[in-house]
């Protein structure tokens, strides 16, 4: 079965969505990713959607679900590389991806993840990772 690859990058996981995502593939990614967060003890997830030409409400919901599930599993999620036309369309569609952090590219996404994790560690009074 077709799968979206998940790469380990230190204590983060990187997912680069490079295909036109059909619904089943999105569901599989959700399952695979939550499994990998636990297995790899990841503290952050980067989802690179720079290749995605559209994000509809199904894909948007999948991204939101991943972020929520990751948070429950003690990991932060940052979505990177959203195309401007996709951002305009998403907002007009009525989808603002609440609770999902975004960054313009992978480098900035990594920085944001590090900040989030640091902040959380201070807030919780223990050090993550």
């Amino acid at each position: 079965m077709e799968r979206i690859p998940i790469l380990k990058m230190g204590s983060f996981l990187l997912v680069t969505v490079q295909v036109d995502m059909h619904d089943r593939l999105a569901m599989t990614l959700q399952d695979d990713l939550t499994g990998r967060i636990v297995k790899d003890r990841a503290h952050g997830v980067l989802i690179d959607i720079s290749s995605l030409e559209i994000v509809d409400s199904f894909i948007g919901r999948m991204i939101g679900n991943i972020a929520s599930m990751a948070r429950v599993l003690d990991a932060e999620t940052v979505v990177v590389g959203m195309r401007p036309a996709v951002a305009i369309t998403l907002v007009e569609l009525g989808l603002s991806l609440p609770g999902v952090r975004t960054a313009l590219n992978v480098d900035q996404g990594v920085e944001l993840l590090k900040e989030c994790i640091e902040e959380r560690a201070q807030g919780n009074g223990h050090v993550a990772g």
Partner: peptide, 17 residues
């Protein structure tokens, strides 16, 4: 335009689903 294309394709995806 690219933005219009994206809007049309997104609407088509919603309604096809």
């Amino acid at each position: 335009s690219l933005v219009d294309q994206t809007k049309i394709v997104t609407a088509a995806s919603e309604l096809a689903r």
